[in-house]
């Protein structure tokens, strides 16, 4: 080290005491961009509402065994208990004769005034309890959202990064592949693939999830590729390259962290939207098996009663409300994120 520590020109920044004392702990912890996002989301009434809704579903999912315990300890909790096999839906408040939840939880009697389990929200045809299905369905919703959105995003981020960073023939090939998938309308593609997969994999969450991932990652890839292209031209990327950084370092430390924010917005919007798409597939009968704790699947019971919904409204209202609220929660957060990141886009879609 030939440099001495003496400063060659006078320190140009006077210390501003007040400025120094200001505690910006959040920024110190997560960096300025994240701090701005977190602060923004937490100070916007709409996104706070969204967060409360999402948190509500997380709590419901976590405490499902306390809200409606399964009939017995060995019960597969993803299956809605059936109170017989009759085709006629039973109205809310009717007696729960068979396969009632094992014990009466602490909240039940004070809130409902009953000593015995009843079908709080009625049953669907086949005597599936709607309350159980909606409560435990929040686990399915969060899981589907997590699996499908995270898998699509990871694949999309990987492909988009490679295409955007390397450009040339790598980009050419990857983007051709993306175009092949985009040529199909999303739901139609997913529908066809899911119905091909059902006979192979059996009825479970997997055929629809895989189909949604296969047709969902391309959006992330395209979006991120564009943002990577723009970010990689920034001088700080050149500076790191000039300093001797390799590709891996450049992408992970400089390009991705600065290009990822629009992807986060879409990710959050998709968390809600994917559950709706999944429900649509379920509704068409290409999702989980009958009786699975899935909102879309419960709504699909209403298919046989399209013309008597005035009597059997509860089949569609309770799971439908759950779907709607869940989608709304993620949407509110996603919208707020987008407004924070790009105020010019406010109010647009």
């Amino acid at each position: 080290m030939t440099a001495s520590t003496k400063s060659v020109s006078p320190a140009t920044i006077p210390l501003n005491e007040q400025d120094l004392q200001e505690q910006r702990w959040l920024e110190r912890l997560v960096g300025p961009e994240w701090a701005r996002l977190i602060k923004g989301v937490l100070t916007n009434p709409l996104s706070v509402t969204g967060l409360v809704i999402i948190l509500g579903f997380i709590l419901i999912a976590a405490f499902a065994p306390i809200i409606v315990p399964p009939p017995n300890a060995t019960w597969d909790t993803t299956l809605i208990p059936r109170d017989g096999f009759g085709p006629e839906p039973k109205a809310p408040g009717s007696e729960w004769v068979r396969n009632a939840p094992g014990e009466i939880p602490f909240w039940y009697t004070p809130l409902t005034g009953r000593e015995e389990w009843v079908h709080l929200w009625g049953t669907a045809s086949g005597q599936y309890d709607i309350f159980y299905g909606v409560i435990w369905g929040s686990r399915t919703a969060l899981m589907i959202g997590g699996i499908v959105v995270l898998s699509s995003a990871i694949i999309g981020i990987f492909v988009g990064s490679l295409a955007g960073y390397y450009g040339g023939w790598v980009d050419e090939i990857l983007m051709r592949v993306v175009e092949v998938f985009i040529a199909f309308p999303f739901l139609v593609g997913a529908l066809i693939l899911a119905s091909i997969l059902v006979p192979k994999l059996g009825r479970s969450i997997w055929p629809a999830s895989i189909a949604l991932i296969v047709f969902g990652w391309t959006g992330y890839a395209r979006l991120l590729r564009g943002d990577i292209l723009a970010t990689k031209e920034r001088d700080y990327v050149q500076a790191a390259q000039a300093a001797g950084a390799n590709d891996f370092h450049l992408i992970l430390r400089h390009i991705l962290p600065n290009a990822i924010f629009p992807t986060l917005v879409v990710l959050s919007l998709d968390m809600g939207a994917i559950v709706l798409s999944f429900a649509a597939l379920s509704f068409l009968g290409i999702g989980v098996q009958e009786g699975y704790t899935d909102w879309g699947q419960i709504v699909s019971f209403a298919r046989s009663y399209i013309f008597s919904l005035d009597r059997y409204w509860f089949i569609i209202v309770y799971p439908g409300l759950a779907l709607l609220l869940y989608g709304l929660g993620w949407n509110l957060v996603g919208d707020a994120l987008r407004d924070i990141l790009d105020p010019k886009l406010r109010g647009k879609r």
Partner: peptide, 19 residues
Amino acid sequence: RRRMQMIFQDPYSSLNPRM
């Protein structure tokens, strides 16, 4: 590369805002 370095024109885009 440690022997040769660069100083950039735009002091805004030459520093990674997240570091």
